[in-house]
Simulated assay, not measured.
Amino acid sequence: MHAGGVASQPLGRRERNKQQKLDRITAAASELFAEHGVEDVTTQQIADKADIGTGTLFL
Rank of each mutant, 00 (worst) to 15 (best):
G4T: 15
G4P: 12
G4C: 13
G4A: 15
G5C: 10
G5K: 10
G5E: 09
G5F: 08
G5Y: 08
V6I: 09
V6R: 15
V6S: 15
V6N: 13
V6F: 14
V6P: 01
V6E: 14
V6A: 12
A7P: 01
A7D: 15
A7H: 13
S8E: 07
S8C: 09
S8L: 12
S8V: 09
S8G: 12
S8Q: 10
Q9H: 11
Q9E: 11
Q9F: 10
Q9Y: 08
Q9V: 07
Q9N: 14
Q9D: 09
P10M: 10
L11M: 14
L11V: 11
L11I: 06
G12F: 01
G12C: 13
G12T: 10
R13T: 08
R14T: 15
R14D: 07
E15C: 05
E15I: 04
R16Q: 10
R16A: 04
R16K: 14
N17Y: 03
N17A: 11
K18D: 04
K18T: 14
Q19I: 11
Q20M: 11
Q20P: 00
K21P: 01
K21Q: 08
K21Y: 03
K21N: 10
L22A: 14
L22E: 09
L22Q: 13
L22G: 08
L22V: 03
D23P: 00
D23I: 01
D23V: 00
D23E: 13
D23K: 14
D23W: 07
D23T: 04
R24N: 06
I25T: 08
I25C: 01
I25Q: 05
T26F: 03
A27P: 00
A28I: 01
A28G: 05
A29H: 06
A29T: 07
A29Q: 13
A29R: 15
A29L: 01
S30N: 12
S30P: 00
S30L: 07
E31I: 05
E31L: 12
L32N: 03
L32R: 03
F33G: 03
F33N: 04
F33L: 01
F33P: 01
A34V: 07
A34S: 15
E35H: 06
E35S: 09
E35F: 02
E35N: 08
H36N: 12
H36W: 06
H36D: 01
H36A: 06
G37Q: 05
G37E: 02
G37Y: 06
V38H: 06
V38C: 04
V38G: 03
V38Y: 04
V38W: 01
E39T: 10
E39K: 14
E39A: 14
E39L: 05
D40L: 09
D40I: 02
D40P: 03
D40T: 10
D40F: 07
V41D: 00
V41Q: 02
V41C: 08
V41A: 06
V41K: 07
